[in-house]
Write a protein that binds this DNA or RNA. Structure first.
Lengths: 114, 114
DNA sequence: TCATGACATCGACGATAGTCGATATTGACA
DNA sequence: TGTCAATATCGACTATCGTCGATGTCATGA
């Protein structure tokens, strides 16, 4: 992989699990998106960011609550960002992560919810 | 793990990602449920079962479309069944798998959708 | 310019997951 | 009872993932 993929979650938009059989490509895209959510540390990071004041949090605010090292937290945030669930804005020395609006809703719809 | 877990998907019911920070246990439960959906083969199996006539399909109808060996398909179906997404009913020599109604909807709601 | 602090990247390790061939199990049928 | 067909389980291999310590990068401020 030579380039960073962004807004991966949009790739699974329009496809629905319960409609017709997923193509091989659509299944791979959706699986890649779901894989970003298939980790307890990443789910907790998402929920903590969502519950933070201003809807954003920096890495230093996240390492404590999840009980993981700074490199590990940074890695998980990168996975979530590349999957299209988080956005990153660097201000000074700090990197603030925020939920991408509608990203989780797109996954919900891909799962067949109306 | 000495016992088979059933209706795993119900464990994540009532919790929402965007509400308040997930507890360690809730995150582990939801991650386990999402992990069952984080594989292209399993997503295709779910969609094929959903699109089958009568809403159910036997293993022999599934090995061909997904292009995997019979033991591998059987393994994926077991994961989906233990996660609460599929139900298994054996009639004669055949094992028919069907979608568990509402299972995917519960995941959608856990993701924060209204 | 140099030191400090926040974050990202690297390299490595152990654990887990997906896949297969071989084999066991179970039900149907002659 | 014996054979065959459908499915499940087992054992092994490979690949991928989560985690960490060490190090690199960059902005701030003395």
């Amino acid at each position: 992989m030579t380039e960073i993929e962004i807004t991966d979650v949009t790739a699974a938009c329009g496809t629905s699990l319960v409609g017709e059989p997923l193509s091989e490509a659509a299944a791979a895209d959706l699986a890649h998106t779901m894989k970003a959510l298939a980790d307890p540390a990443r789910l907790r990071l998402l929920s903590i960011v969502a519950a933070s004041a201003g809807g954003e949090a920096c890495v230093c605010d996240l390492t404590g609550p999840v009980g993981l090292s700074q490199p590990t937290v940074s890695h998980h945030l990168k996975v979530l960002t590349e999957a299209g669930f988080l956005s990153r804005s660097k201000r000074g020395t700090w990197a603030y992560y925020a939920l991408v609006p509608g990203a989780l809703d797109r996954v919900s719809r891909a799962l067949g919810a109306a």
